[in-house]
Amino acid sequence: DNACIESFHALIKREWLNRFKIENYQQAYVLVFEYINTFYNTVRIHSHCNYMSPNDYEKLYANYKKKAALIAG
């Protein structure tokens, strides 16, 4: 079943690639790389992060760890 990657392809087209007129492979490569590294993996909300962005989720986890360390002593 490849539903997961098909869903990703639909997202990248809908949220990013349809905004640009892509002239060549290099431009497409840069656009895909930019989308994944600067938006999808950092800013976009994800269901597995309780519908938070990965950055926000990691900040929440880091704060939790700090509080746990303070309580532990």
Rank of each mutant, 00 (worst) to 15 (best):
N55C: 13
Q27A: 06
A28M: 13
Q27I: 06
E23K: 02
F8C: 11
N63P: 03
N63W: 06
E15L: 12
M52E: 13
E34L: 02
W16Q: 09
E23D: 06
K13H: 12
V30D: 14
H9Y: 13
L11E: 00
K59P: 04
N18H: 14
K67R: 13
A69S: 08
I36P: 04
L60R: 13
K59C: 12
M52L: 11
E58C: 05
S47N: 05
I5N: 05
I22G: 01
K66W: 06
I22L: 01
Y64S: 07
A10Q: 13
A68T: 09
H9W: 15
A28G: 04
K13G: 09
S53F: 11
C49W: 02
S47W: 01
I71L: 15
Y64G: 06
A28P: 03
I22V: 15
K59N: 14
Y57P: 03
I71M: 08
I45H: 14
L60S: 15
E58I: 05
E23F: 00
K67C: 08
N24Y: 09
C4L: 15
R14C: 11
A62P: 03
H48R: 08
A3M: 05
A10Y: 14
C4A: 15
Y29S: 06
R19E: 11
E6M: 08
C49Q: 07
L60T: 13
K67E: 14
R19W: 00
N41G: 07
I71P: 00
A62R: 09
Y61I: 04
G73N: 08
R14I: 10
I22E: 01
F8S: 12
V43D: 09
N2L: 15
H46F: 04
N55I: 11
C49R: 02
L17E: 01
R44M: 05
I22P: 00
L31C: 03
F39K: 04
H48G: 03
